[in-house]
Amino acid sequence: MINFNGNIVEEKQVISINNRGLNYGDALFETIKVSHGKLLFWEAHYFRLMASMRILRMEIPMNFTMEFLQEQILELISYKSLLDSSVRVKLFVNREEGGLYLPDTNNIDYLITVKPIESDFYLLNDATYQVDLFKDYYVSPSLLSTLKTNNKALHVVGSIYAQENKLQNALILNTNKQVVEALNGNLFLVKDQVIKTPPLTDGCLKGIMRKQIIELVKQLPDYRIEEASISPFELQKADELFITNVIVGLQPITQYRKKSFKTEVSKALLQKLNVKIRLAN
C-alpha cells in the first residue's frame, strides 16, 4: 500500500502510462529515514523539496506544510504497523499529466512509499568497500544537477559498471574532470587536518547528510572543513575517503585501486551523528 495524494491505495492503482515522471523525468523525490515515528532531519528534507519544486516551476499546494506532509508520511507508516520500527520513506512529487515537453499544468501529484530497514541508528560498516572512477559519462554542473530528480540514467549505468567490476560503488566525475560524488551519496576526503567535500557548484547533489556532516566536522577540534574541488589525483593521497547519505549515514571507503584507507575520522563522525539523533529525540 502507498499514499497517493492523501489516499492509501494499492500500488497498482497509481501510475499511469501518461505520468510525467515516467515520460519526461518531470519529478523530484526525497528519501527519508524514519526511526520509531521520528522523521530524521525532516526540516532539511522539507526545505530542500520546496526549493527544488520552485526551481522546476512546480506549483506548491497551499496545504504542503511541514506538518501536513509529516502527517501523510506517519499515516502510511501507522497503516503498515511500522511505527515501532525504522523505515525508509520515499516522497515522490511529479507534475500532473498533460502536455509534451511543455506541460499543460504546473500542479502536482505526490506519492509516498515505505519500506522497513534494520537499524534504528547508523552503524559503521567496516567490511571491504572498494571503489573506482566511473568515466563513461560525466555530470554537467548546474543548479539542476544538485537536485534530487528521477533523471538518474548516469547513476543506473554506473551501478551496473560497479557490479560488473566487483566494486561496492563508483565515483562520478563532472565535465571538468573533478570528482563530484559517489553513485549513491556525497563524497568526503580526509587529508592531514583537512576534510574536503566537493562544492555544489561542481555539480554534486545537495545532500541532506552532507549538510549534517559539514556541521559535525566543525565540532572536531583537530580538523577543518573545506568545500573545494577534488581531483582524481588527490584520491590516492588521501588518509580517508567516505560516502554519506541519509539511509546508511556514513560509509567508509576501504580501497581505491591499490590504495587502502583508515577509518578513524569516519568512526568519530558516526558517533557524533548518532549522539545528535539521540539528543534530537
Rank of each mutant, 00 (worst) to 15 (best):
K237C: 04
K258V: 02
V194E: 08
D222W: 00
Y129M: 02
L111G: 12
K272D: 01
I230N: 00
V87W: 11
V139T: 08
L279N: 13
F188P: 02
L28M: 09
L173Y: 02
Y138D: 06
K206R: 14
Q163R: 13
G99K: 10
L187Q: 05
Q271G: 05
N106A: 13
I172G: 03
A44T: 07
D84Y: 13
T128N: 09
P252S: 06
N18C: 06
G158Q: 01
Y256H: 04
N3Q: 12
L100N: 11
K115F: 11
Y101Q: 11
A51Q: 13
F29N: 07
K90F: 15
N184C: 10
E43V: 02
N125P: 03
K152H: 10
K115N: 14
L124T: 10
Q163W: 04
L171H: 00
L91A: 13
L187W: 04
F261P: 00
L235C: 01
T31R: 08
F41Q: 03
S85E: 15
N63P: 02
L82P: 11
N107T: 14
F41G: 00
L187C: 05
F64Y: 14
I15Q: 08
L22H: 06
Q13S: 15
Q255I: 13
L56G: 04
V190P: 03
V275L: 13
F134P: 01
N5R: 10
E97L: 05
V9T: 15
I172V: 13
T149Q: 12
